[in-house]
Simulated scan of single mutants.
Amino acid sequence: MKEAVETVNKLPFTLEEYENRLNAVRENMARQSIDILLVNDPVELNYILGYRSFGYDALPWQCLIITHTGNPIVITRKLQSAAYKNQTCVKEILFYGDNDDPLKLTTDTLRKLGTSQKIVAIPFNTKYITPYHMSCLEKELYDVANIVDGTNVISECRLIKSKQEIKYIEEAAHMTNVVMSNVTKKLQKLPSEKEIATVVIHDLLKMGSEHPGGLNPLIGIGERSAYGHPTFEDHRAKPQDVIFLEFSGCVNRYFSPVMRTLSAGEPTDLAKRLEEGSKYAVNKVIENTYPGMTAEQVAEVCNKALAEAGVIEYSHVRTGYSVGIGFTSWRDGISIKEGEKTVLKENMVFHILPYLTDFKTGVAVSEMIVVEANGARKITDIPQEILVIE
């Protein structure tokens, strides 16, 4: 069923900004000779339309169809249509009932738009399109000239943030700063992971953060600090245990995460050594990042600093990644690592995270930065030290 939609004023950005984003996506489609683009990722639906619902995880299928002319068309479950009508700038919605076939509705709609000898882009590297979805689409779109990978068509446009996007990220950073700076003052001497999570989530929400979503917060006590993205559980700290902590405030689905290490009393010598190395590396990156560098060159700055600090053997992860909109994750497109040739430009935003571990202890001092004309500006502001729980 098709429904016309009146534009509402419950959007985090101006209609002009959404129009500019759509135009940029269409320009990228033209450069890649793409006639029709299918969009499924909730982050990209947010970017183009203002979509901000967790309903994407309760759907068999939804997508946005973008062509070079005309209004983009949303295809979604009927239950989700109210969210689109009242929280996005979309003008055309097609919805299906729970007994309908959403992929048939999609392919029928594409045929009406004209698919003969067209290039259709579908994101291949996404969890929102399954092999089943692809097989159905490929079977029905037999008249297209080619189906190509559309994974990066929108993500490339998202890398450079507008002034308003940076403002939201800075507001999220303020929440992160305040909550992280004060967390140890609200914990008993030997806290559990759940107790730490309670303080973090309560204080973020009290400051006005939206639903944190995804992996937020990440907490690992003792050897669990080295697990990599541990879920917070009932584990309780013992004296001198390090505690890995990463979280972010959320403003209009924009994030500003940070990593710090807590310690239950006096930290161990290894924890101090790793913390000093991580701190040295993150500050070297901030001091030596400029527009015009490649992401790979930024990673080289970090690795050189880690070597100078004598801790390079404890580094097993990338230097960082771009950050922006988030639902299940706040990661936003590219990694700062060896082989990544993306050129840094003004108003790109990154999380720099020289995480160090011997796989029994995990320590990190991370920071959020925005690339500006004359270098990188740090937008998180938390003591760069192990935060001791007295």
Rank of each mutant, 00 (worst) to 15 (best):
T69R: 11
N46F: 07
L37I: 06
G114W: 10
E17P: 01
L94A: 04
P60G: 11
Q117G: 13
V39P: 00
Y18N: 02
Y142T: 14
I36K: 04
L79F: 14
T107I: 04
T106W: 03
L59P: 04
A83S: 12
F124E: 07
L15W: 09
K118I: 10
L45I: 08
K85H: 07
L38T: 01
N99H: 11
L38F: 02
L59R: 15
C63Y: 07
K78F: 14
I129A: 00
H133L: 03
Y96H: 03
S53T: 10
S116I: 13
R52Y: 13
P12Y: 06
L59S: 09
N23K: 15
D41F: 02
D57K: 15
K139R: 11
L94W: 06
Y18W: 06
E140D: 15
R26V: 00
I75H: 02
C136N: 07
N40H: 09
P12V: 13
L15F: 11
T88A: 05
E138A: 15
S116K: 15
I73E: 01
K127P: 11
L110D: 00
E27R: 10
N86A: 13
V74F: 04
A121T: 05
K112E: 13
E92N: 11
R52K: 15
Q87E: 14
K85Q: 09
P123K: 01
T88S: 03
